[in-house]
Each structure stands twice: as structure tokens, then as C-alpha cells.
């Protein structure tokens, strides 16, 4: 295949995949009042406006909170689970793996609805708590999978060596295993963060007035107003996600773990 053909095919594909963002970025820079591309004049006013909208600020904070702490919670129970599945010969290991991976298979909207009707309402749980639990459950499969993959690459005789040199099992885990899967844990955190932050279907049913994640907030804003601020916000969020992943790739070759 000639070089030209390759670049043409890739050019078209990438334009299709990425072109739309670039359009959104510029649409958000419109100096006019309406959403249009090419924008009528360039201005950053819509980008600035985004920061002043009260509901955006609140939902951003909530999304951030869920992304950080939901992922941390998922890691807290996910890392031991990955370790146990990887190093021990557990009865029912397959079943445990399937259970933990289940949230990915079921469509998000079903998860949201089910949790709303049979978890939030009966147990009278706050919306924030419900969102927290949902996001943690949705991130957990990714956490387990990425950490497992990291553990797979670590030979177990290192832990045995540590034990023979005098460590207890727990010390062997903290002194030898953790430092060497640090990259995997970080990758799992970032993957979980991005997954949680961008999550929509499950959060859709669970969000309520005043308590919304950012994507949901954007959706409802779009239904009312059609100005470029949504474009600007989309562009900003895209930048944020990209920046996080880019930094992660630089720091530890993120792609290895995913």
C-alpha cells in the first residue's frame, strides 16, 4: 500500500473522528449570540461565561467529587480483589470475576433506573450517596481489570523472596508488590476518573434538581438555551480529559496498562 493511500485513508478517518471537536472549539469562540460554524467573529466570551454559570460550577464540583472519591473507593476494594484473584487459587474465582465485571455489561440507563427504584427510594438514600455508590460500582470493573493486568506482569517469587527475608505477608505486599504496581494503580485511577466524570446514562435517573453531574447539567442546559456556551464547555471538558490522559501517558506510559 502506497504511502499516499495510507495517509489519505488515515486523514479521512481522523478528520471524521476529531474534526468535530475542532469545530466545537471554534464554535465556542463565536462572537455572536447563536451557535454557528464558522463562527461570526472570534471571542472568548462564551468560554468565560461558562465559569459564571452557577449550576455549571456546582455540577462540576459534584462530578469532580464523584470522580475522585468514587474511584478511590473502587480502588480500595478493587486492589485487594485483584490481588486475591491473581495470586490465590480461589474457588469460584470465575464467578467473582463475572460479578465484578457485570456493571460494564448492563446498559447504564438500566443501572440508573434499577438503583433509583430499588436502592435509593426504599432505603431513602441521598442523591449524592446514590451517585457515589453508582459511580464506584461502575468504576470497579475497570479498576480490577487494570490492576490485575499489572499484577500479571509481576512475578510472585519476589513476594516469596521478601517473606523468606523476614516479611509478613502484609509487609511483602506493601514493600514489594505496591511499589511495583504503582503505575497500574495510577492508570486505573485515571481511567476510573475519566469514566466517572463522563458518565451519563446511570446518572441520568439518579440526578435530581440541584444535584446533577456536569454532563447531565449540560444536557438540560442544551434543552433550554442554544447558545455557544455549551460548545465552550464541551471544548473545555475535552481539553481537561485530554490533558489528564496526556500527562498520564508522559508520566508512566499509560497505554501499557489499558
Amino acid at each position: 500500500m502506497s504511502r499516499l493511500t495510507i495517509w489519505v485513508i488515515l486523514g479521512v478517518t481522523l478528520t471524521f473522528l476529531i474534526g468535530p471537536f475542532l469545530i466545537v472549539i471554534f464554535a465556542g469562540m463565536s462572537a455572536g449570540e447563536a451557535l454557528a460554524f464558522p463562527p461570526q467573529g472570534l471571542s472568548l466570551k462564551w468560554y468565560a461565561k461558562v465559569f459564571t454559570v452557577e449550576s455549571f460550577r456546582a455540577s462540576f464540583a459534584l462530578s469532580l467529587f464523584l470522580a475522585i472519591f468514587g474511584t478511590l473507593a473502587a480502588l480500595a476494594i478493587g486492589i485487594p480483589a485483584a490481588y486475591a484473584l491473581n495470586r490465590y487459587d480461589l474457588p469460584g474465582a470465575e464467578m467473582i470475576r463475572t460479578i465484578v465485571a457485570a456493571p460494564i455489561i448492563v446498559p447504564g440507563i438500566i443501572v440508573g433506573l434499577a438503583l433509583l427504584r430499588y436502592f435509593v427510594v426504599p432505603l431513602d438514600v441521598t442523591i449524592t450517596m446514590a451517585l457515589f455508590v453508582t459511580h464506584a460500582a461502575l468504576v470497579l470493573p475497570y479498576a480490577v481489570r487494570v490492576v490485575s493486568s499489572s499484577l500479571n506482569n509481576l512475578r510472585s517469587d519476589m513476594e516469596e523472596a521478601a517473606v523468606i527475608l523476614g516479611c509478613t505477608r502484609f509487609q511483602a505486599f506493601t514493600k514489594v508488590v505496591l511499589p511495583n504496581i504503582r503505575g497500574g494503580i495510577l492508570a486505573a485511577f485515571i481511567l476510573g476518573f475519566v469514566t466517572s466524570f463522563n458518565e451519563v446514562p446511570a446518572s441520568l435517573f439518579l440526578s435530581g434538581p440541584g444535584v446533577r453531574t456536569l454532563p447531565i447539567d449540560m444536557l438540560s442546559y442544551m434543552e433550554i438555551t442554544f447558545d455557544p456556551s455549551v460548545a465552550a464547555l464541551s471544548a473545555l471538558l475535552a481539553f481537561m480529559s485530554v490533558a489528564i490522559v496526556f500527562i498520564a501517558e508522559r508520566l508512566l506510559g499509560f497505554s501499557r496498562y489499558v
Binding site: R155, D157, M158, E160, A161, A162, I164, V176, N180
Partner: peptide, 9 residues
């Protein structure tokens, strides 16, 4: 115990 793979940290 010296492991066959050395098991160095």
C-alpha cells in the same frame, strides 16, 4: 533462598 529468576526487587 536464591531463586532461579533471582527475584530481585
Amino acid at each position: 533462598l536464591v531463586f532461579q529468576s533471582y527475584a530481585l526487587f
